[in-house]
Design a binder for these strands. Structure first.
Length: 875
DNA sequence: GACTGCACGTA
DNA sequence: CGTACGTGCAGTCC
């Protein structure tokens, strides 16, 4: 057998190479948004894919140490005892690296009590015996002893991990002057400082090689130690035991009992979905295509399991399709494909059959009754489809399951965004998709009926994984909410172009004047919207004191500029702040204006899977961040008007819902009393904290406890509180101490809820919505503490979101039969458009439904306002 | 054109 | 070194 015909086995020492990468790459450039360090992982994988590309191994494994304990440390307790504690920043990277490798289809091996190099030695020895060409990659010099004609070592050079030196027998002789199997003899004499194995004093590589050449072997040398003259001879005689011990410890074990042998390590295809996912989490972007390329040849050989063959779709006439649906038993998968927002085709599936038809008015008429009935329908991303059907005059009821929503509930941090993703994850199959880049695709995409068939099967897969409580959240909260959102998005909200464009022009003029003034102050024109150019002006030309650092320089955000105004006032800074304010408002206004449709209304899209806590998010445009804080910005809200044919806008918002939930969850007697007393919350809390009568709580006291109360919900620290209130940290600390002395159950609850989450791995809202928190046990402090704060907040923010959703869909349902309709949801506020003559009824419904959405130990307070525009209604 | 970082609007 | 979002611009890379 020639060498090229031999299979190639590559075994890598994961730990030692990742560790080298960790020190070779600057950690600052390899940290995710969340604070996870990734330099070791990145460096390793980068080297690893290069290796795969260059060497094209047919068999592959990466070995890791399990811990620092091994049979060697038991035999010689000093072994490696001088090594500094592994940095926590590195330790946390190993499990993630293993996750990457497993996603890439690479076998990861480790064995308690053994070091990775023993695994390398075992696999190399067996591999060579079984006819493999073996490549080893390790940063540990002891592996040199393994080199033979069949076994080559790739050893990272000092510069880092990108350069690998090839050691075959000749290269070893060239470098050390002795054959590979004698390298451990040299090492035993010289000693290994990094392993805390002292050798013979004054003996280096040169002397060791000279002696070994002279005597032919280590044993012969030790036998003849008496014949060696000089100080080194004496040293050798005094350290004979050390040398024997070193030689014993640096011998790698070639017969470790492993669950797999070389032949079992044939390369496997990577799990594309898993790789994408873990790389996204680690924020590796450039690495992704490199990994796919390196794995390409393998992935193509073995495509994802074809799975069951989708049934051939039957094309039916409208009446036939309606009859088929009416006769279907149990759940029916429903897929509507869209063309410009209107239904194009519809496909149904049940009982392994798949039927479909082009959408037409006639089909709408025939199928309308079934669509509107409670017959259970299973869909994927139902909202846009339901909107299209509703527009086409065919409203849908009976949504029993939405696979996209269910997938999000299971994994809110990284939801699968398409049915194809879900098919891959829950069925392990590939959804047939036409390649959009090909004019004549090799493969036809699934038809609507086939998509419905897949949807039904994915739903089954999801149901197996959905805990009961989460399943109730889907059925009892999310699906009813989905139906309400369809109508809200279709309704839109009337916005006055006249009001907006007038305001925009005003702001444009003002911004331009401010800019000119600012240019005059510094004597040149700059782009005031460029943080980079601003930094030059502020910190170099004007030499103002530098602000907080960002990744790319020094911040120029509003808070920092306000500080600057106090410390080192300069007219430019004030003008800049005013310019920012004007251009920001103008930008929001122009964006909104552009979003006004032909019907004079703005139709946002609510993303039901848009948050990790259970909140909705709003896009195109985002109507959940319309300014409200300043008098001027409220002119934008005034442009949101009651629509033609309606009488008024009603706004209803929960007051302090998150604090009420905290009172409920903690059961703190003081906080519960505060809400039941009817007293102003912050006045009541201030009175307790500062030990004064409620009427003697000053505005300053109220501000402080208010910031503290809200901060609690977010996991605020004394540092953060002091910054927020611009007070000394010691005062913030004292405030926190006093607060908790009065409201101790709050602290106890917050603590225990995070601890519970650490145990369970997830948090839970009052209604059973879960959010996983794997980082609560991370050794990376930044990561862990970030997770702790988020875990603190998740049940509170999430329960509030649940309550609002419940109120929302109940109000939506109650308003059936009224012309009035819900238009907007802004987390704790609803905006309703009220038809003439319906105000009293609508107000009653809204108050009852919002107030009664949950039974807490404290009441849910609802504030209602009425007006002709959103600003007016808010008062 | 795609992507990132900054800044900033809301609850 | 307080949670949860979305958007627009400048700058950078391809």
């Amino acid at each position: 057998m020639t060498d090229s015909a031999k299979p190639t086995l590559l075994v890598v020492d994961g730990h030692s190479l990742a560790y080298r990468a960790f020190y070779a790459l600057p950690v600052d450039n390899f940290t995710t948004k969340d604070g996870q360090h990734t330099n070791g992982i990145y460096g390793f994988l980068s080297m690893f894919v290069n290796l795969l590309k260059a060497e094209k191994p047919t068999h592959l494994a990466v070995a890791f140490d399990t811990s620092r304990e091994s049979f060697r440390t038991r035999e010689y307790t000093e072994y490696k005892a001088n090594r500094a504690e592994t940095p926590a920043e590195f330790r946390g990277q190993i499990p993630l690296l293993q996750e990457c490798l497993e996603a890439m289809g690479v076998t990861v091996l480790s064995k308690p009590d053994y070091e990775a190099d023993d695994i390398l030695a075992t696999l190399a020895t067996r591999g060579a015996a079984e006819g493999f060409r073996v490549l080893l990659c390790s940063g540990d010099r002891d592996t040199i002893q393994l080199v033979t004609d069949e076994i080559t070592l790739l050893y990272p050079s000092v510069q880092g991990v990108s350069q690998l030196k090839r050691y075959d027998p000749a290269a070893v002789v060239e470098k050390y002057g002795l054959p590979a199997e004698m390298y451990p003899d040299i090492a035993a004499l010289v000693g290994e400082t990094s392993d805390n194995l002292p050798g013979v004093p004054k003996v280096g590589e040169k002397t060791a090689v000279k002696w070994l050449t002279q005597f032919g072997s280590l044993d012969a040398l030790l036998e003849g130690a008496d014949t060696i003259k000089g100080v080194v001879g004496g040293n050798l005689r005094e350290h004979l035991d050390d040398v024997r011990r070193n030689r014993k410890l640096n011998r790698l074990l070639r017969d470790v009992d492993l669950p797999v042998g070389p032949a079992d390590l044939a390369r496997k295809p990577l799990d594309a979905q898993a790789v994408r996912e873990v790389f996204a989490r680690l924020e590796f972007r450039t690495l992704l295509p490199r990994v796919f390329e390196a794995a390409g040849a393998v992935a193509d050989d073995e495509p994802v399991a074809a799975g069951e063959q989708a049934p051939a779709p039957r094309e039916l006439a409208p009446a036939e399709l309606a009859a088929w649906a009416a006769a279907a038993e149990g759940e029916v998968g429903v897929t509507v494909t869209l063309l410009g927002g209107a239904p194009d085709r519809i496909g149904l599936s049940a009982g392994g059959e798949a039927v479909e038809a082009a959408w037409s008015d006639e089909l709408g008429a025939q199928l309308g009754a079934w669509l509107a009935s409670s017959a259970p329908k299973v869909m994927s991303d139902a909202k846009p489809q339901l909107k299209a059907l509703s527009r086409a005059g065919a409203p849908v009821a009976g949504i029993a399951f939405d696979v996209l929503l269910a997938g999000w509930l299971l994994r809110p941090s990284f939801p699968d965004r398409t049915l194809a993703h879900l098919v891959e994850r829950y069925l392990g199959e590939k959804l047939p998709e036409a390649d959009p880049s090909q004019l004549v695709p090799e493969q036809e995409g699934a038809t609507p009926a086939q998509l419905s068939w897949y949807t039904l099967r994915v739903a089954d897969g999801l149901r197996d994984e959905l805990p009961e409580a989460v399943s109730s959240v889907l059925t009892d909260i999310e699906l009813p909410t989905l139906v309400a959102l369809v109508d809200m998005e279709l309704a839109g909200v009337a916005v006055s172009h006249e009001k907006l464009s007038g305001f925009s022009a005003e702001l444009g003029t003002r911004a331009e004047a401010l800019a000119q003034e600012a240019y005059a102050v510094i004597g040149r024109e700059v782009n005031l919207g460029s943080p980079k150019q601003l930094q030059e002006v502020l910190f170099e030309e004007l030499a103002l004191p530098r602000t907080r650092k960002t990744k790319t320089g020094y911040t120029t955000d509003a808070g920092a500029l306000a500080d600057l105004q106090e410390k080192a006032p300069h007219p430019f800074v004030g003008l800049l702040l005013q310019h920012r304010e004007a251009t920001k408002l103008k930008q929001i206004i122009d964006g909104l204006d552009a979003a006004i449709g032909a019907d004079g209304r703005v139709h946002t899209t609510y993303v039901q899977t848009g948050s990790q806590t259970g909140r909705l998010s709003s896009t195109d445009p985002n109507l959940q961040n319309i300014p409200v804080r300043t008098e001027e910005s409220r002119r934008i809200r005034a442009a949101f008007e009651v629509g033609a044919g309606y009488e008024a806008l009603l706004t209803a918002d929960y007051s302090q819902i998150e604090m009420r939930i905290m009172a409920h969850l903690s059961g703190d007697p003081g906080l519960v009393e505060a809400f039941n007393s009817g007293e102003d919350l912050h006045r009541f809390v201030g009175a307790r904290v500062f030990g004064v009568a409620p009427e003697d709580v000053t505005p300053a006291m109220r501000t402080k406890v208010k910031a503290m109360s809200y901060g609690l919900v977010y996991g605020l620290s004394a540092f953060g509180l002091s910054k927020q209130l611009r007070i000394e940290q010691s005062e913030a600390k004292a405030l926190m101490t006093e607060y908790f002395a009065r409201f101790g159950a709050v602290r106890d609850y917050l603590r225990s809820s995070v601890e519970q989450a650490r145990i369970d791995g997830y948090t839970e809202t009052i209604f059973g919505r879960r959010r996983p928190f794997p980082d609560l046990t991370s050794p990376n402090r930044v990561l862990r503490e970030n997770a702790e704060r988020a875990a603190l907040n998740a049940p509170i923010q999430g329960s509030a979101a649940d309550i609002m959703k419940i109120a929302l869909f109940r109000i939506h349902d109650d308003l059936r039969g009224y012309a009035s309709r819900v238009l907007l949801q802004i987390h704790d506020e609803l905006v309703v458009e009220v038809a003439p003559g319906e105000w009293d009824e609508v107000e009653r419904i809204v108050r009852e439904r919002m107030g009664g959405a949950a039974e807490l130990t404290v009441p849910l307070d609802v504030q209602v306002g009425r007006g002709l525009d959103w600003n007016e209604a808010a008062h």
